[in-house]
């Protein structure tokens, strides 16, 4: 498939997000308020995974996200809801004169973008239970396709308590069946 070269502003964050994933960010630093402005006029921005001390975990991959909603939090800080559109491979990163980093990137295809229909199974039921007990998650996702296995698996990977440097490996693992087996081996209650 012919994919276009993208030039996207970069937001380094300890946030792991796969296509279809939605998260809420609180933006207060002027530089990143500028990023929000640029991103909302153009085509979103790129989240590059950092560890919790804001050091980059890697700089080869990123999550291309779009702003789908915004609000001011109770303390007056801007909150934006972003939805991951695709994963990208980063070719280069430059710092522009507005102090923002811009990445030249290429969209890549990922299993999480291809719907896999499935009757309700333990993974979706369990995820549904998580959403029903978490007001923020429940509100963020206006659509909750629990019958789509690839969506369910992607959301489970985002939630799993494993380190970000381990999570990044899921960017590289392109075999859906393998990923599914791994997630099942963690979540399924009664293992075969």
């Amino acid at each position: 498939m012919n994919k276009h070269n993208l030039k996207l502003p970069v937001f380094p964050l300890p946030v792991f997000i796969l296509p279809g994933g939605i998260t809420r960010l609180r933006v207060f630093e002027p530089r990143y308020l500028t990023l929000v402005k640029v991103a909302s006029k153009e085509h979103g921005f790129l989240i590059i995974l950092t560890n919790n001390d804001a050091e980059p975990v890697q700089s080869k991959w990123g999550s291309w996200v779009e702003i789908i909603n915004f609000d001011k939090g109770e303390d007056g800080v801007l909150e934006i809801d972003v939805k991951c559109r695709a994963l990208v491979k980063i070719k280069s990163i430059n710092i522009d004169n507005d102090k923002l980093q811009y990445a030249n990137a290429l969209e890549i295809e990922h299993w999480s973008q291809k719907p896999v229909a499935n009757a309700a199974d333990e993974l979706s039921e369990s995820l549904q239970h998580v959403y029903e007990n978490n007001a923020l998650l429940y509100d963020l996702y206006t659509e909750k396709p629990f019958q789509n296995t690839s969506w369910v698996i992607a959301r489970w990977i985002e939630l799993l308590p494993i380190s970000l440097s381990d999570k990044i490996k899921f960017f590289r693992q392109h075999n859906f069946e393998d990923v599914k087996n791994i997630v099942q081996s963690i979540i399924t209650k009664h293992q075969k």
């Binding site: 792991f16 303390d75 939630l159």
Partner: peptide
């Protein structure tokens, strides 16, 4: 810490409670 982002990852403890394991 207060001014960051909402981090929705579960803790190991939460996952254990959730799965009842």
């Amino acid at each position: 810490v207060v001014k960051g982002f909402y981090f929705m990852e579960m803790s190991q403890e939460q996952l254990a409670v959730h799965l009842n394991l």
